[in-house]
Design a protein around this nucleic acid. Structure first.
Lengths: 336, 336
DNA sequence: CTGAAAGCGCTAACAA
DNA sequence: TTGTTAGCGCTTTCAG
């Protein structure tokens, strides 16, 4: 099997210099005459030459690859975000490497290191524990996905979780609910303060007294919803409505409630946040607040591209993506 | 901001040659004395040196990056497969670039080209239209995911869709069903023959006469299920059970049926294939045949690693992963 | 418009 | 055990 042809082979065959071939390959056509262009292209075709981007990366210090680092692609929230990112980045000639950190801080640092070793051009990250300092030290153009404190100097884009929760709570009170349980997703290094803050703020504004027992910390998955909902239903009186930090939790809650014989929404209303696909197929289908996942990915990619190409203002961008209330069957008027 | 230190800077500081540093960085510790090892490591730490894998790739002709090419990461089947792949490849030091071809043959070829330009070390692909010749010509070690004809010389791993369908049909006939509708997922360049063949074979073996109208070609998504199910329910008499090519289709079917007032499974049984997460949260939850998605990813990665590292036999491997019947609530005894 | 020459940072013979 | 040397394939001044 013959070795792959290089730029030199092409140059020889076309009777020109490497430089000229390089110009053709990189589309710098203003610097090449029609004539030589033709010769070079014919040589490329006949040899089946393919540019070696490794070599070119070594010279240019650009790889045209970025990293997407998230907790787990298996969480149904992320694939759509990833699509948004890939569609935009792909259009600009970038490939994207995926990294799952599984909520483990050490993995985060390791992947960051991988990104540096491979001289990746950019990083899109939903951070767990990595600090702004670590990110800045890595020298990699970065966009934080998800609204977080602690990264004032880095571009950031996220769904407006605070107002998502507000929308949910407003909607539930409009239905007459006063005792609203909160299944609060919590990771080890959690920062879901905005949702918790949102809850407190809302109660205060609405003049509803706070009952601490209505707030239950749970894991971000189905099991979290199951366990949390059990605890809420032990309360006397139990909440007439429950808001979960995400749809996975809400669906878990939905199922325990149904199993325990509660009718939904007649006996108890349940809401999620995110609007993943599964939320639309439960029975009753889940009322939720939609996060624009694809859009989130696009915006993140846009910010990253601007940063990589040094377009846009030098100061860090912060973009907040609005959420929409999606009313389905799991919520109804408060009983009594 | 200072330029990144190179292997030469480390060599100077440690008072050794580049070669020695290279050996340390690459863990060839048997070729380095304790003493120099210490010196080099101290130099590396104090300079904050990070290996430039681009440069090393240029020399070694290995990138430690592979490509995963699938139709769409947004299809809930794939994230789990991807996890299996990433977990295994990651452990061996490989990163993985994702590519979505959106069922478009041209994209497939473009991504293949990208993989070559970037000198990726391997390719994991669920092929749409790309031929064995094109893949072999690319010189990239490849594993086909999904059982297909037309790639006799390439490693392949897939769920045993044929027997998955057999299991489903057997189960349904055991419940007394004789008129079984088939919602057959079909892409433009489709190759779901195995599932169709499985259906014909089964009818023949069971002595059930074939009614062509019971086989409906649909797209691989929710909408496919919706449209296909409408057609099946127009039949007189309509089927007492319906098997769909995947869960997305089945869930679509489930919803139309429910909307049209059919009780499930009392009036009609519905089954899917795959066992995606959403299948477990519908009401009734979907009876299905589970494909071991994570396992599939692991096996694919294993084959690719063996191929890359030239372990294992030179002849192409073909591995078939068994499926399991998962009985849930959407199926019941045939009426009448 | 074209080309010569100098590297990018690293690894792999080959010597010592 | 260590170092010398010669590139890997490409881009980028700089001169013509």
């Amino acid at each position: 099997m013959r070795a792959r042809p290089t730029i030199i082979d092409v140059a020889h065959l076309a009777g020109v210099s490497k430089t000229t071939v390089s110009r053709v390959v990189n589309g710098e056509l203003d610097k090449v005459s029609e004539d030589t262009l033709g010769k070079v292209q014919r040589a490329i075709d006949s040899l089946g030459y393919i540019q070696n981007t490794i070599a070119s990366s070594l010279r240019t210090d650009r790889t045209n690859i970025v990293m997407l680092m998230i907790p787990d692609i298996t969480n149904p929230f992320w694939p759509e975000v990833a699509r948004g990112i890939q569609d935009l980045m792909g259009r600009e000639g970038y490939s994207v490497v995926f990294a799952n950190n599984d909520w483990i801080g050490e993995h985060e640092v390791e992947y960051l290191y991988t990104a540096r070793r491979n001289r990746l051009d950019g990083l899109l990250i939903n951070p767990i524990r990595v600090t702004q300092e670590q990110i800045l030290a890595s020298q990699i153009p970065t966009v934080i996905m998800g609204l977080r404190d602690g990264y004032p100097d880095i571009d950031m884009v996220g769904s407006d979780s605070y107002s998502a929760a507000q929308k949910a709570l407003e909607y539930l009170t409009r239905l007459g609910h006063q005792r609203i349980g909160l299944l609060l997703g919590q990771s080890v290094y959690s920062s879901t303060h905005s949702r918790l803050g949102s809850y407190y703020d809302f109660l205060e504004r609405s003049g509803i007294p706070l009952d601490e027992r209505l707030v239950v910390s749970v894991t971000f998955d189905n099991a979290g919803g199951v366990n949390g909902m059990r605890r809420l239903l032990e309360l006397e009186p139990h909440p007439t409505a429950v808001l979960a930090s995400n749809d996975l939790i809400a669906i878990g809650a939905l199922h325990v409630a149904a199993e325990m014989g509660y009718r939904i929404p007649e006996d108890i209303s349940i809401m999620g946040i995110d609007d993943i696909y599964a939320a639309s197929v439960t029975i009753p289908p889940l009322t939720t607040v939609r996060k624009q996942k694809y859009e989130l990915g696009c915006q993140a990619a846009r910010l990253l591209l601007d940063r990589i190409q040094s377009k846009g203002p030098p100061e860090p961008q912060k973009v907040k993506i609005p959420c929409q209330l999606v009313v389905r069957g799991s919520t109804g008027r408060a009983v009594g």
